[in-house]
Design a binder for these strands. Structure first.
Length: 219
DNA sequence: CCAGACGTTGTT
DNA sequence: GTCTGG
DNA sequence: CCAGACGTTGTT
DNA sequence: GTCTGG
């Protein structure tokens, strides 16, 4: 899945993604929810840029932008076949930087949130696709979906799906405007030794709250 | 041919 | 049960 | 992803 | 826009 994540900005972002620096204002976020506007890295020409995009991919041909509410994730296993994702896969690949992500473990009637974060790095690079939709004023609306894959050994204890996370070598390959067949191999579960997990407060379940304590281990 | 969908997740 | 809002 | 709503009328 | 189902 991947329906919530965190994003704690730092100067490292510009170095890591070799982006052209802009006036983009980054705010620390501990509970990013579907539908929100968040920074995403994409390539334009030979340069990488940050752009603010809405989480939930609205296909360029959509008549109603609400279709994007259902497009927060794209399954790696079927992304090539899906009308909403096949064209973005070819020409509109992007990276969503994240400090960590949440997955819920179903325990009877309870949903128990767990937080996954990098063991060493500052950020995860989620593999994503985006699209550009025009609203009634011909304004470009950018939106994105996070690609998911089967869980690795550490995530599998909590949940059976996880976001595709790119390693350093994969990041630039994914953004490059190359034949998409050559990057499909990147859509694999991440090395579980490069991440950690712990249970966190159920307060994160409420999308209305966004507190730094959400990413701390629950005692 | 036209009409209608276009998605993932989890749960049953 | 299913949709909407965050 | 989870939480919360899910409806209409008339009156203030 | 493009595919599927009827």
């Amino acid at each position: 899945m991947c329906g919530r994540y965190s994003f704690i900005p730092s100067e490292k972002l510009f170095l890591k993604y070799k982006t052209v620096q802009t006036n983009y204002v980054f705010l620390p976020r501990y509970n990013v929810c579907p539908g929100e506007n968040m920074p995403v890295v994409f390539k334009k020409g030979n340069d990488n840029y940050f752009a603010e995009m809405k989480w939930g991919l609205i296909p360029f041909w959509a008549k109603d932008k609400k279709i994007g509410d259902n497009m927060i994730n794209a399954r790696a296993e079927t992304i090539e076949e899906k009308p909403s994702f096949k064209q973005p896969l070819k020409t509109k690949r992007c990276i969503i930087p994240a400090s960590g992500f949440y997955e819920w473990k179903r325990e009877g009637k309870e949903n128990v949130p767990h937080y996954f974060s990098p063991a060493n790095d500052a950020y995860f690079s989620f593999a994503g696709v985006y699209d550009i939709w025009k609203d009634k004023h011909e304004q470009d609306i950018y939106s994105y979906a996070i690609i998911t894959t089967q869980a690795n050994e550490i995530v599998d204890k909590i949940h059976d799906r996880m976001p595709v996370i790119l390693n350093e070598a994969g990041e630039e390959q994914w953004l490059q405007n190359s034949n998409y067949h050559s990057v499909l191999g990147l859509l694999k579960p991440y090395d579980s030794k490069k991440m950690q997990v712990y249970q966190v407060s159920k307060e994160v379940n409420s999308s209305k709250m966004d507190l730094a304590e959400f990413i701390l281990p629950q005692e």
